[in-house]
């Protein structure tokens, strides 16, 4: 358990360090994700300690968004000014994204399955 916490924090630290050293515009924790994934792929399995911590964190992931979300209260002016744009963009872009993804993936999946036969 403790080993899992240490691993996650060290991967995050390494990610933050890498992002700054290489001046990459990518969030440090995302690079940390890539580092941990690489370690797991090399080891070929997820050590029990890492799995326990990771699954606990991810089970309560939604709770972790709350503090940032409450910050919306500070941006009332921006939201009042642009809420119609936000609403249109959210609905239209989500629909377009779903259609593009679904149709592309279905086409490629069917082709891959045909090649398998």
């Amino acid at each position: 358990m403790l080993a899992g916490i240490i691993t996650l924090l060290i991967c995050q630290l390494a990610g933050e360090l890498l992002a700054r050293l290489l001046n990459l515009p990518i969030p440090g924790p995302v690079l940390g994700l890539v580092i941990l994934l690489t370690i797991l792929l090399i080891r070929g399995e997820v050590p029990a300690g890492i799995r326990t911590v990771a699954e606990t964190l991810l089970r309560y992931l939604a709770l972790l968004f709350v503090p940032a979300g409450v910050g919306l209260m500070v941006y009332g002016d921006l939201i009042r000014a642009d809420w119609q744009i936000m609403a249109i963009v959210l609905v239209v872009s989500t629909a377009l994204t779903m259609l593009a993804t679904a149709l592309t993936f279905r086409y490629l999946l069917r082709r891959a399955q045909r090649n398998d036969d």
């Binding site: 924090l9 995050q12 924790p29 940390g32 990771a54 964190l57 972790l64 968004f65 940032a68």
Partner: peptide
Amino acid sequence: PYRDYFAGAQFIHFLLGPATVALAVPLFD
């Protein structure tokens, strides 16, 4: 004020970092 609330809530907010790293586990699966 939000700032006062966040002074405490930041400890929960911080966990987003390790949680992002933890996404490696389901991806590995």
